[in-house]
Each structure stands twice: as C-alpha cells, then as structure tokens.
C-alpha cells in the first residue's frame, strides 16, 4: 500500500480537502475504496504503516471536539506521522487577526498537514491560502465537514452495497449543520434520494436548491426510508427561539421505535454524535441493532487515514 503512493497519480487533484463541493465522483470513489481497505486493515491489523513517517501533522481545533480530533490523531499516528494537537481557546483578539497570525506562526514550524476545525464558515479555506502545507477541513461553521460525509457514505455503502437509489432521510437542525450540508452534496452526487425533515425554523433558506424533498415532520419523511440520519440539536437552539422545548422537539422530530417502524425493514440509523438521548433520538433506538452509530466512529478513522494518505501524495511531491 505504501509503495503505491509514490507511483500512482494522486487520488485528489487538490493538495487540500476543504469540502465535498468540488470533488469529482472519481475522487470520491477512490477515497471510499481506499477507506474501505483501511477499515479492513484496522480490524485485522497490523494497523501501523509508515506512509507519513517523518511528516508532521498538526490538529488545529478552534472549536472543542473530542471524537473528531482523536479520530484524526489516531489516523495520523497509524500512518506514522508526528501528530501535534493544538486546542486554541478563543481569545479576545479580533478573530480574523488571530486566525491569520496563528497560521503564519504554525507555517513557520513547517508542518506537512494541517487539520483544522473552526466555528466560522470559510475560515479553513482562508487558512489554506496562507500556509504552504496540505489542509484538511475538520468542520468549518455551518459550511462543510467533508470527512464526516465520507464516513457516512462509506457506512451506508458497507451496509447497502450501494448508494444509488437509496432513500436517505436527514432529520434535525439542517440550517446550522455542516454535516447535513456535506452529506447533501456527497450523497446526491452518489445518486441517493434525499429527504430533509426539520422544523421550518431549522431549515436553511431556499432548501429546494439542495435537491432534496422537504418535510416538516419526521413521520412523513421516514416512510420507506433506507437510511435515517439524525442530527444533533444544540441546546442553544432552544434559548434562541428556534425550537420551544426538548419535549416538543422529541414529540415531532425525535426518532423512536414507532416512527422507525415506518421506514424499510432493513433501515439503518445514523448519528454524527454526540447524541442527545431523549431529544433527537430515543435511547432504545440508539442502542437498537439497526443503529450503526458506533460503526460510523470506527469507519471514521479509516476515512481519515485514506484522506491523509491521499494528501500525502502531494506532500511527497512538494518535498
């Protein structure tokens, strides 16, 4: 595997992975194939490889994250990179200056790959223009979270064998969700039929542009679905008058067995985590055999290894 990196053309045309938007079907397919192989190898071992040996990967997280950061950290370490985690607490300095200054500081340390999460949409792209290394978007505001969408697509593919023609219902805070945005682009690119279910306050403006069917209740949206993807409802949505209460939200948009029974028999339930049990998902459903939520986490490491490997081709070329 390691040897293939040196000779074959790079999987990704760009030295960065900033979003799903702009990726071609071929790039996505190649990434998913590579991820599939890593997923297999992560189970059977040996997990360790030396593709990124001698390379420096910095995880730059401006927003708190446990699972995504450890997933990237593990992925980098399994590929042999030196991984440094930097959690940047928000300071009182104007955000724009902090961001660019931080970028220049880090750039001076000559990293090879920067994995960045930031609460402002577009911030990761801005950083990528200022540094000399590869940049991976680990989530920027309500814009994109490409590795999450890739791991979701891979999870679905592993269960259903395909994406084309599948009915995928995404339910929850679509308006503020980078996971939803990246998935909308990726899954529709791969031929899935998408449905969105959300209170009207949590739908983005002009939702029809995403090519999905819009539903204002989960019951109608879930009928005959192959995949149900629940999104996390942030508690601040309630204080900001988007949703009146967790009780009402669960009543109309929470996934329970009753609503799930309307989906196809072989439906799978997904959630990007962390879950609010009893708000968007019933505990019993989260722990149901149809739930693939833990598998999403497992596949997540493999997807991030594939992404890092694909970018390593660029790193190698540059040096």
């Amino acid at each position: 595997m390691a040897a293939s990196v040196e000779i074959s053309p790079p999987i990704l045309r760009s030295p960065h992975l900033l979003g799903i938007e702009g990726l071609s079907v071929e790039e996505v397919s190649a990434l998913l194939d590579l991820s599939e192989r890593w997923a297999e190898r992560n189970r059977t071992g040996p997990k360790k490889s030396d593709i990124l040996r001698g390379r420096t990967q910095i995880n730059l997280f401006f927003e708190n994250s446990t699972r995504t950061q450890s997933s990237f950290e593990l992925a980098g370490k399994r590929l042999g990179a030196d991984v440094v985690n930097m959690a940047i607490a928000r300071s009182s300095i104007t955000k724009g200056e902090t961001l660019i200054d931080t970028a220049m500081t880090l750039n001076a340390m000559h990293p090879d790959i920067l994995v960045i999460r930031h609460e402002a949409a577009g911030a990761v792209e801005l950083l990528s223009q200022k540094v000399d290394c590869s940049v991976v978007n680990a989530g920027d505001g309500a814009h994109e979270h490409p590795t999450q969408a890739l791991l979701d697509a891979l999870t679905i593919k592993r269960h259903k064998g395909r994406l084309e023609g599948l009915v995928v219902t995404i339910c929850g805070d679509i308006a503020h969700s980078r996971v939803a945005r990246s998935n909308l682009i990726l899954l529709s690119m791969l031929g899935a039929r998408l449905r969105l279910a959300a209170p009207a306050t949590l739908l983005p403006s002009a939702p029809e542009q995403f090519g999905a069917e819009i539903f204002t209740n989960l019951v109608d949206a879930i009928r005959g679905a192959d995949v149900v993807m629940m999104l996390r409802l942030q508690s601040e949505r309630m204080t900001a008058s988007y949703v009146p209460s967790a009780r009402e939200y669960f009543h109309f948009f929470g996934l329970n067995h009753e609503k799930l029974s309307l989906a196809k028999n072989d439906v799978i339930v997904m959630h990007p985590g962390p879950m609010n049990r009893g708000v968007e998902i019933d505990s019993a459903v989260a722990d149901d055999p149809r739930s693939v939520i833990r598998e999403q986490v497992e596949v997540g490491v493999a997807v991030r290894m594939a992404v890092l490997e694909a970018l390593a081709a660029h790193v190698t070329r540059v040096s």
Binding site: M238, T239, S241, V243, P244, S245, R247, E248, H251, F252
Partner: peptide, 15 residues
C-alpha cells in the same frame, strides 16, 4: 406565543 408572554422563547406550538 411566547413563554410567560415574555416575548423571548416560543411556546410549544405543536403540543
């Protein structure tokens, strides 16, 4: 329309 008619948080319009 809002909790305690305070004009800040929506009531549970659905329920």
């Amino acid at each position: 329309l809002t909790r305690s008619q305070a004009g800040m948080e929506l009531t549970e319009i659905g329920l």
